[in-house]
Amino acid sequence: MNNNPMDMMAAWMKIAASYNEMTLSAGEVIARRTMIMASGAMSAPDAMGILMEKVTIFATATEQASVAAASGADPARITAAALKPYSTQTESNLRQLRR
């Protein structure tokens, strides 16, 4: 574990930037999916997939954060491990919806 305050600050700033990017992408995903739902173009399996991805991502994020914590990672690395699955899925959803 690195206790250098500048390194810790840099790690948290990187997490904040990643979280901000994910939040902006999530907003666009929500807006696009809402338009699809409102137009009646979303199928029942697609709607169920949206629900199920939340459960899957939560489980994956919990697992990755737990592995990082068990490995002795510092809080910033644990947080980054937990955030990664959400960021990855949000970006994937956005790419699919922009097609």
Rank of each mutant, 00 (worst) to 15 (best):
M1F: 09
M1W: 08
N2E: 11
N3K: 09
N3V: 07
N3Y: 11
M6H: 09
D7I: 09
D7G: 14
M9R: 13
A10Q: 11
A10W: 04
A10S: 08
A11C: 04
W12K: 03
W12G: 00
W12T: 03
M13C: 04
K14T: 15
K14P: 01
I15L: 15
I15E: 05
A16S: 14
A16N: 14
A17P: 02
A17D: 12
N20V: 03
N20T: 11
M22Q: 08
M22V: 02
T23D: 13
L24M: 14
L24P: 01
S25H: 06
S25R: 05
S25L: 10
A26E: 12
A26T: 02
G27C: 06
E28Y: 03
V29K: 00
I30K: 14
I30V: 11
I30R: 14
A31L: 13
R32W: 03
R33A: 01
R33N: 11
T34P: 00
T34K: 15
M35S: 10
I36S: 01
M37Y: 15
A38F: 04
A38K: 10
S39M: 07
G40K: 09
G40D: 05
A41N: 13
M42V: 06
S43E: 09
S43H: 05
A44C: 07
A44D: 10
A44L: 13
P45T: 04
P45H: 08
D46N: 10
A47N: 02
M48V: 14
M48E: 13
M48R: 10
G49A: 06
G49P: 02
G49W: 06
G49C: 07
I50M: 11
I50T: 08
I50Q: 08
L51G: 15
M52S: 09
E53L: 12
E53A: 13
V55R: 10
V55S: 10
T56D: 12
T56M: 10
A59Y: 08
E63K: 15
Q64T: 04
Q64N: 11
Q64S: 06
Q64R: 15
Q64Y: 04
A65N: 02
A65I: 01
S66Q: 12
S66C: 08
S66P: 01
V67Y: 04
V67E: 09
A68T: 00
A69M: 12
A70E: 11
S71P: 01
G72A: 06
G72Y: 04
A73T: 03
A73K: 05
A73F: 01
P75L: 04
I78P: 00
T79Q: 10
A80F: 00
A81L: 05
A82H: 01
A82W: 01
L83K: 03
L83A: 13
K84I: 00
S87G: 12
S87C: 08
S87A: 14
S87D: 09
T88Q: 14
Q89W: 06
Q89L: 11
T90S: 07
T90A: 07
T90C: 12
E91Y: 07
E91L: 07
E91N: 15
E91G: 13
E91S: 12
L94A: 05
L94Q: 02
Q96K: 13
L97N: 04
L97S: 07
R98K: 13
R98I: 05
R98V: 03
